[in-house]
């Protein structure tokens, strides 16, 4: 039996967390839904005494916005390119790491190193590597990536500067995001591989199964829970992409000639705040939540059907 004296005590322990959660988590959830469904809502005009009609105008409006559509496209593209790419690459690296003995620890340390980096700081290093000083026709410093391209006999490319294109910008972002995403995925997949029962592989060896077949028929199915996990977390993180782009391009979210070109959904939400557009920001945040929720559910559903536990 729970006596009332203990109840009182338990709530005392919970009080700080509950008070803070009510202010900074529960209220925001309610308020976001409220703001999203009040047409053209703005906190400042509400304080000024304005009233708003209930409706879905915020949603219909941002879905017509060029900026929002562009942000949605960029975010989705970055997700669908970088998540499979980094997962496959991480899987190959993890299998390789697991199959060697000498130097394995050494390589592991190297591959985990990008894990604890500051995404703004290292984004600036990537910007420096791709940066052209001067113009593409007449440059002082072509940037080390272009140096490499030129050494291999290619023409230098304007990756991130004023004459760059959306495609080249995106290539830089994909490289940076994959580079950044690898360590976590390798860590999880390698952990999974190390816990796989060796007997499966011995059985395959006795049967004379080829390496590729062993990989697709044994390794991948046994690893599928870990693969599902890194794919889901990859998509969740990917749809919230923001600071890596700030790292490479700065607050302008794009080259100086086309600011906001690489803006993402999260960037769109933050842009709306100082512009006093909380209604639209809330609508965008709810759309983001629905996307993340849907992607997670689809992944879980596919995972349930295809994952071997």
């Amino acid at each position: 039996m729970v006596d009332s004296k203990h109840q009182w005590k338990a709530w005392l322990y919970l009080a700080p967390a509950i008070i803070l959660l009510l202010i900074f988590t529960v209220w925001p959830i309610i308020n976001t839904i409220r703001m999203a469904f009040l047409n053209n809502y703005s906190l400042q005009s509400e304080i000024g005494g304005a009233t708003f009609s209930i409706g879905i105008q915020n949603f219909t409006r941002i879905l017509r916005y060029k900026e929002f559509k562009r942000a949605l496209l960029t975010t989705t593209l970055l997700c669908v390119i970088t998540v499979p790419l980094s997962t496959i690459l991480a899987l190959i690296i993890a299998v390789c790491l697991n199959s060697i003995k000498p130097l394995s620890r050494f390589f592991q340390t190297i591959f985990f190193l990008p894990y604890v980096t500051n995404s703004i700081a290292i984004g600036m290093v990537f910007a420096a590597m791709f940066n052209i000083v001067g113009t593409i026709a007449n440059f002082n410093t072509p940037g080390v990536v272009n140096n490499l391209l030129m050494a291999l006999g290619f023409n230098p490319i304007d990756w991130i500067n004023t004459s760059s294109t959306y495609t080249t910008n995106m290539i830089v972002m994909v490289i940076y995001i994959v580079w950044n995403a690898l360590p976590f995925k390798i860590l999880i997949l390698l952990g999974g591989l190390q816990s796989v029962n060796k007997q499966y592989y011995e059985a395959a060896k006795i049967d004379g199964t080829s390496r590729f077949r062993t990989f697709t028929r044994i390794t991948v199915p046994l690893l599928s829970p870990m693969i599902a996990y890194v794919v889901i977390t990859g998509f969740i993180g990917g749809f919230k992409e923001y600071s890596s782009i700030v790292g490479v391009f700065g607050d302008s979210m794009g080259p100086a000639s086309d600011k906001g070109r690489l803006n993402t959904i999260v960037g769109f939400i933050y842009d709306a705040l100082p512009n006093l557009q909380q209604g639209r920001a809330s609508a965008a945040a709810l759309i983001l939540f629905v996307i993340i929720f849907a992607v997670t559910m689809v992944n879980l559903y596919v995972g349930k059907k295809r994952t071997h536990y």
Binding site: L273, A285, L288, I292
Partner: peptide, 13 residues
């Protein structure tokens, strides 16, 4: 829930 959703209100708060 993505943290961005809280940020909008928290900024006002």
């Amino acid at each position: 829930i993505p943290g961005e959703l809280f940020t909008i209100t928290n900024y006002g708060t």
